[in-house]
Design a protein around this nucleic acid. Structure first.
Length: 636
DNA sequence: GCCGTTTTCGGCCCGACTGTTTTCAGTCG
């Protein structure tokens, strides 16, 4: 199995990340900046309070849905509020928008405080414990008379250890032990987001998938869940197998060589823990019902909820097994590709295409299933034809091993190796974008000389490797300095065709300054691409903020492209911003930022980011043939 | 609470699992 190697980004980390949580000019603010995660938590506390108060269940659902939605939003609620666009978040209507406005303006909400005042404070910390909902938390707080929110977890733990919980009505020894286990996990931080970047999960899952395909009873094996939707970070790995012999497939799965231990085993599937500590769930299903299962476990949750609502309007109840007919009329439907089980009054779907067709929709690719308009679009035949891996004709951001004494890391593959790999991928061209020579270690003249030498050597290599027939752009990835200038002397630009410009230091200067800095760098006629535009490192660093509307406007008007960087820890531009960029008619390029020829195969992950951002082929410049890319890249 | 090619009022997704039950409530995905 091929695992992408992790490069040393220590430079980035040392110079950049100093934590976040405060907005610009926070010292002048009287109220603390409240981020989306904190707002979501507050909304969930209100939902929990309503549960305890036996408030209308649909109101409770509404608060929970709003919390999910706010947490997932890539734009901070504060920003949306300032722009008067809070109600653009699905699940936020007039009432919640007003409450959140009050929250962001004054730091509190009268209505929320009234509700929370009716609930013992100690309930809220307990909501973080796995397996705890509002009712259980409230019950225990009342029975055990926990009156101190700060010590609630500790007090609960003490009560469990002394055996007090088992004697409470409705609880027993098992639930007492479960609570102790859950508290242990909470303490160890296992509950907190422990997600890995998609390409790592993809590499693990590819190996399991190929192992499962070797089982003689496997008819079809697919990813499920966030992995199949190609979300940037993945928790558990979920896999589905279509088979007529479920038991044999489950046993085969349990014999996987990388298995550390078996967690669960049932007739419909099994769960194992890998030696790497990652959990893998397998689901098995008969071929006739495989489509419904695949659809159900691929999600997302919101997509499924919406889809079931559509089904209900046709008097069909959608579940992981198929669609149950709820009326005489529905029983008579003729659904192409589906079969009908009279006994269960259930339509069964061998594949997803027939399932979506049954609801009078276009097939929706997994990457788009987030309930952000795809269901409406598919119902009116307006789903965009999104880009595929085979549309890519080359890429423009690869690091070679040519030593021009850069301030960042060198690649390890030679130009010739890169060309050969590109050829094997059917690329028409590559752009070699090595890091610029270190500014501190050289004089201006040194740099110009190094650049001149590099150009000549590359041209020489091209001449002696004509038979490979892949075109070359001699490019450079240039640091954007804190003052917005580029870390390359003007004379040295004569020796490159074009540049990717990126930020590698000074990450915490605030949105306004950062935006100016980037726009200044992009103003250079040879600066054509903004590299890894948010600077995020998944799970390590959130990235800096830019005024995207300004950036998009500038890029559109000046023919600059924004990069989707496929490097495993980056996947940057993030999918939601890809969609925004496209709405603003900005062109994108998908690059791998390869430091090794092996990394070039990671292109598929950049493409999946583009697909999640609803990018069509003509939104992505490196789907163009060589001559057209050349026209754009070399035009001053 | 939200939301709208059946609606500005009257709807609002589906099923599995678990522990404690003796028919179900709570939690989860």
């Amino acid at each position: 199995m091929y695992y992408p190697k992790i490069l040393d980004y220590q430079d980035d980390i040392r110079s950049g990340y100093e934590g976040q949580g405060m907005g610009d000019g926070c010292f002048l603010c009287y109220t603390r900046f409240m981020n989306n995660r904190e707002i979501a938590k507050l909304l969930r506390e209100i939902a929990a309070s309503y549960v305890i108060l036996s408030e209308d269940r649909f109101r409770i659902i509404a608060y929970g849905r709003a919390a999910d939605s706010i947490e997932k939003s890539t734009v901070e609620a504060e920003q949306l509020w300032k722009e008067g666009k809070l109600t653009s978040v699905p699940g936020i209507g007039g009432s919640l928008a007003a409450h959140l406005g009050e929250l962001l303006k004054t730091g509190k909400v009268k209505h929320f405080e009234d509700i929370k005042s009716k609930i013992p404070e100690a309930v809220f910390p307990l909501l973080d414990i796995p397996g705890f909902g509002a009712k259980k938390a409230y019950r225990l707080v009342s029975e055990l008379k926990l009156d101190n929110a700060k010590n609630a977890i500790k007090d609960l733990s003490a009560a469990a250890k002394s055996g007090k919980i088992a004697s409470i009505e409705g609880f027993g020894n098992k639930s007492q032990q479960d609570i102790l286990d859950a508290l242990k996990r909470l303490k160890e931080g296992q509950v907190k987001e422990n997600r890995m970047p998609l390409p790592y999960a993809g590499a693990i899952a590819d190996d399991i998938l190929s192992y499962l395909s070797k089982c003689e009873y496997t008819l079809q094996a697919e990813f499920l869940g966030s992995l199949r939707r190609r979300v940037a970070t993945i928790g558990d790995i979920d896999i589905a197998v279509s088979t007529r012999n479920p038991k044999e497939v489950v046993d085969w799965f349990l014999a996987y060589p990388q298995k550390e231990k078996q967690v669960e085993k049932g007739t419909a599937g099994a769960t194992i823990l890998l030696k790497s500590g990652r959990q893998v769930d397998l689901r098995v299903q008969y071929p006739g019902r495989f489509g419904a299962m695949l659809q159900y476990f691929t999600g997302s949750k919101n997509h499924n909820i919406h889809l079931r609502e559509v089904a209900l309007k046709k008097r069909l109840s959608l579940s992981e097994y198929g669609m149950k007919a709820l009326s005489k009329e529905a029983e008579m439907y003729k659904l192409t590709g589906a079969s009908y089980s009279k006994k269960e009054k259930m339509f069964e779907f061998p594949d997803e295409k027939s399932l979506y067709r049954a609801l009078d929709m276009q097939y929706i690719p997994p990457e788009m299933r987030e309930d952000t308009g795809e269901i409406e679009a598919a119902g009116t035949n307006k789903l965009p034809d999104i880009i595929g891996l085979s549309d890519i004709k080359g890429e423009l951001h690869i690091h070679s091993n040519y030593d021009l004494e850069p301030s960042h890391d060198l690649g390890i593959s030679s130009l010739k190796e890169i060309l050969t790999t590109a050829k094997s991928m059917n690329y028409e061209y590559v752009g070699i974008s090595d890091h610029n020579p270190s500014v501190s270690k050289h004089t201006k003249e040194d740099v110009v000389h190094i650049m001149e030498r590099r150009k000549h050597e590359f041209e020489h290599i091209m001449l002696s490797n004509k038979s490979i027939r892949v075109n070359l752009f001699i490019m450079m990835e240039i640091d954007i300095l804190p003052d917005g200038k580029l870390a390359l002397p003007e004379e040295a630009f004569n020796y490159i065709d074009a540049a990717v410009v990126s930020i590698h230091s000074g990450f915490t200067i605030g949105t306004g300054m950062m935006t100016k800095r980037v726009l200044s760098a992009l103003s250079h006629p040879k600066a054509k691409i903004l590299g890894h535009p948010t600077g995020r490192l998944l799970g390590k660093r959130p990235g800096y903020d830019l005024d995207w509307q300004q950036i998009f406007k500038f890029c559109f008007e000046n023919n600059k492209a924004i990069e989707i960087n496929s490097y495993p820890d980056r996947l940057d531009l993030p999918d939601s911003l890809v969609r925004e960029a496209i709405k603003n008619r900005v062109k994108l390029v998908i690059d791998t930022d390869s430091h090794d020829k092996e990394h070039m195969s990671l292109m598929k992950y950049g493409v999946s980011v583009a697909r999640r951002g609803w990018a069509k082929k003509d939104d992505i410049l490196n789907t163009l043939p060589y001559n057209k890319v050349k026209d754009w890249l070399l035009k001053p």
